[in-house]
Design a protein around this nucleic acid. Structure first.
Lengths: 201, 201
DNA sequence: TCAGTAACTAAGCGCTTGCTTAGCATGTTG
DNA sequence: CAACATGCTAAGCAAGCGCTTAGTTACTGA
C-alpha cells in the first residue's frame, strides 16, 4: 500500500515513530479524506495508541500541513529543475510534463492530499502552500512564454495554456492507481507528446 | 452565491423546501466538503430547523446521492448530445469540449461534488454513478476513435487521449470560480482549440 | 545509584455529530 | 366539524470526535 514515493519523501523523518505516523496519515487522508479520517485511524495504522500521536505532532491538522508543505515543495523542485534543464523550450516542456505527470501517478496518494485537501489546511499553512502553488504555475507559464517568444510554441493565451498543462498532471492524482494499465513513466511520455502538440510545437 | 446552474438543474424539485435544502447542500458540500458539512449547516442555510431535513431526505448521504446522480446524468446527456451533433469528428469533439468545459466552469460547485465526493457516496449510489461515468468516458473515447478511423485525428492511444480530454474539463471544476478572468464560454472555446491540436487534427 | 528524560498507554473529558422523538399549527376532506 | 395529513420545531439521545491527563516503562548519563 505504502508506495516507494512516500518512503523517499520522508526517509529522513526522525524519530521513526513520527515517520510511521506520517506514512499512515498519507494513506488514510488519500483514501478517506482528511475529515473522514480519525486520529485513532492514523495511530492504529502506525501501531500506537491515539495519545502517542500528540507526542510527535501537535494536532491532526499539523500532520496534514506537514504532508502538504513537503509535497508541494517537492513538486516545485521537480518543476523548476525540469524547466531549467535545457535551452530548447520544447525539451524543457516535454521533460516538465513527463516528470510532473509521472510524479502525480507514482505519488497519487500524496498528490491527492496536496491538490484536494487544501481547504482543510489551517490558514497560515495554506498561505505557505498557496505561494508554492503560484510558483509552480508561474514556472510552467514561463516555459510556455519562452517557447512562444522563440517561435516554437503557438498559443495566444499563455495563462490558459499553463492551466491546461498543470490540470492534465494534477488530475492524474485523482484517477491513477496501481491497477492502471500504464506505468507512471509511460503516462508521462504520452502526456508529453500530447502537450507539445497542444502548444502548437 | 447560488448560481443559475443549480436553479436550472433542480427547478422541478417539489416541495419547494426540498429544493431549498438541495441548493443549500450543493453550496455547503462544494465549499467545505461533504464530511465537513453538518446537517445543521444545510438546514440553517435553507431556513429550517435540523429536524426538517429528515422530512424531505432520509439522510445527509441521500442529499449527496441526489446531487451526484442528477449532476452525472446531466453531464452524460450533455456529452452524448454533443457527440451526436454532426458527422465530422472534429466538429463533434470541439462541441463536446466546449460544452463539457463550460459546464464545469458554470457549475463548478456541482462539478466539485460530482468529481471529488465520490468516496462519500453509499455503495449502491456509487454503483449507479460509476456506470454514468463509464458512459461519459466511453462517449469521449468513441469520438476520438471515429476521428482516428476517419484519418482526421492522429493519436495512437485513444484511451489515454480520452483520459486527457476529460481530465481537462473535470479539473476546471477544481480551480474555476466567479472571479476567474474567462467566462465559461470563452474557456470552452479555448480548450476546444487546444484539444483539437492535442489530437493531431 | 538514581534523577532525568523520551516514548509510550489507559482512561476519559467536553463537545459535536447524525438523527429521533414528541408535539404543535395549518389546511384539506368526508 | 371531526378526522386526518402535512410540514414544521424544541429538545435531546447515543455515538464518536480531537485532544488531555496521569501514570508507566526503558534508557541515559553524572
Amino acid at each position: 500500500m505504502t508506495s516507494q514515493q512516500h518512503a523517499d519523501l520522508w526517509s529522513g523523518e526522525r524519530p521513526e515513530a513520527a515517520r510511521r505516523l506520517l506514512l499512515a496519515a498519507v494513506d488514510a487522508f488519500a483514501t478517506r479524506g482528511f475529515h473522514a479520517t480519525t486520529t485513532r485511524d492514523i495511530a492504529t495504522a502506525a501501531g500506537m495508541s491515539p495519545a502517542a500521536l500528540y507526542i510527535h505532532y501537535p494536532s491532526k491538522a499539523a500532520l496534514l500541513a506537514e504532508i502538504s508543505r513537503q509535497g508541494h515543495a517537492a513538486t516545485l523542485a521537480l518543476v523548476e529543475e525540469a524547466a531549467a534543464h535545457s535551452d530548447d523550450p520544447r525539451l524543457r516542456m516535454r521533460r516538465l510534463v513527463e516528470e510532473f505527470t509521472a510524479w502525480h501517478a507514482r505519488g497519487h496518494t500524496v498528490g491527492r492530499i496536496v491538490n484536494y485537501e487544501l481547504r482543510a489546511l489551517p490558514a497560515e499553512d495554506f498561505e505557505v502552500v498557496a505561494e508554492l502553488r503560484r510558483r509552480i504555475e508561474d514556472t510552467v507559464k514561463q516555459v510556455i512564454e519562452d517557447g512562444v517568444a522563440a517561435g516554437v510554441f503557438h498559443t495566444p493565451e499563455t495563462r490558459t495554456a499553463a492551466r491546461a498543462v498543470t490540470s492534465l498532471g494534477i488530475d492524474v492524482a485523482r484517477w491513477y492507481n496501481e491497477r492502471s494499465s500504464e506505468t507512471p513513466q509511460q503516462l508521462g511520455e504520452r502526456y508529453g507528446v500530447l502537450v507539445l502538440r497542444m502548444l502548437g510545437a
